[in-house]
Amino acid sequence: MQLYAQHPVQRTRQLAADVGVLAWVLLWVLVARTVHAAVLVLAEPGRAVEDLGSSVAGNMTDAAGTAEDVPLVGDELAVPFDALADAGGSVTGAGQAAQDAVATLATVLAVVLVVLPVGWVLSRWLPWRLRWVREASAARALLRAAPDLHVLAARALATAPLPRLAALPAGTGAGWHAGDPAAVRALADVELRRLGLRPPDR
């Protein structure tokens, strides 16, 4: 598998693009982590409410237990404290729900901050890189053993920009049609240069 071009300039471009994509991904991961941590700070009030509710519920439960020990009227005295303990439990639940909502918001924001920009870049970079790897690997396969330059020449004739074809020596197309090895090689070189690959030794 051919991952990078053999031509130094094109290989440098590919490496720069790969490093740029990696840096882009790392940047947005760091941004997402920072935003996640910043949003989680909003959970502090919910945590304080939960602690308050737990404290009130615990104190009122203890008070209700003490009131029940009073002879004759203990059960009646414990009723208000039990009610306050239940209210404290509700406050605890509200505080926990607020923390859960903030945690969910922080996670969603972090995921969106990574998926959207990274997905946008990958949707452009990945097809470009995979297409080049597939084409370059196929071209290298054609060059192994007995190089089949006719396929590469035909590919150049079909896809190369007209200015590049016009820069070839006059009669190259007719020479390719007649099977002239020099014309075939000239056209194959156009395709190989596009891919950043070295032509086979003459």
Rank of each mutant, 00 (worst) to 15 (best):
Q99P: 01
L84C: 10
L149Q: 04
V73S: 03
T92N: 10
A139S: 12
D75R: 14
P71A: 07
R155H: 14
V114S: 04
A136M: 01
V70R: 09
P71G: 04
V114P: 01
A167N: 05
V73D: 02
S90N: 10
Q96Y: 06
T159L: 09
R129I: 00
D69N: 08
H150W: 07
R140C: 02
T159Y: 11
L109G: 04
R140M: 08
G175V: 04
H150I: 02
R124P: 01
R131I: 01
T159M: 06
L157M: 11
A174Q: 15
A156K: 09
R155W: 13
L165N: 02
G93N: 11
V73F: 14
R124F: 12
G93P: 02
A85F: 11
P169E: 14
A110K: 04
A141D: 14
E76R: 15
A85T: 11
G171R: 03
L116A: 13
A110I: 03
V91I: 12
V111H: 00
V102H: 05
A101I: 05
A141W: 09
P127E: 07
R131A: 11
A139F: 04
P163N: 05
T66R: 11
D69S: 12
G175M: 00
G173H: 15
L130S: 10
D69L: 14
A101N: 06
V114K: 05
A94S: 15
T172V: 03
G74H: 07
R164A: 14
A78L: 06
P161V: 01
L122G: 01
A156D: 07
L77F: 11
R129M: 06
R124D: 07
L113W: 02
A97K: 07
A145S: 11
V91K: 01
A101D: 12
V102D: 05
R131Y: 00
A156Y: 10
R134S: 12
W132I: 00
A153K: 06
G95A: 09
V151S: 13
G173N: 06
A138K: 05
W128I: 00
G88E: 10
P117C: 05
V73A: 08
P117V: 01
L105C: 11
A153Y: 07
L105W: 06
V112A: 15
A156I: 04
A85V: 10
V73C: 02
E68P: 00
R131W: 02
G88K: 13
A83V: 13
P169A: 10
A170Q: 14
T66N: 05
G88S: 08
R131L: 11
R129N: 05
A83N: 13
V121S: 03
R164I: 06
L142T: 02
S90Q: 15
G119Q: 09
G88F: 08
V115P: 02
L162N: 00
L162W: 10
L142N: 04
V91M: 15
S123G: 12
A110E: 06
T66S: 06
L122S: 00
V108W: 09
V151E: 14
P127N: 08
V118D: 13
A139T: 03
G95I: 11
A166I: 02
V79C: 01
A94F: 15
R129H: 04
L142D: 09
G175P: 07
T104V: 13
R134Q: 09
W120H: 09
V118Q: 07
L122C: 08
T92Q: 15
G171P: 04
V112T: 14
L149V: 00
W125C: 01
T107G: 10
L152E: 05
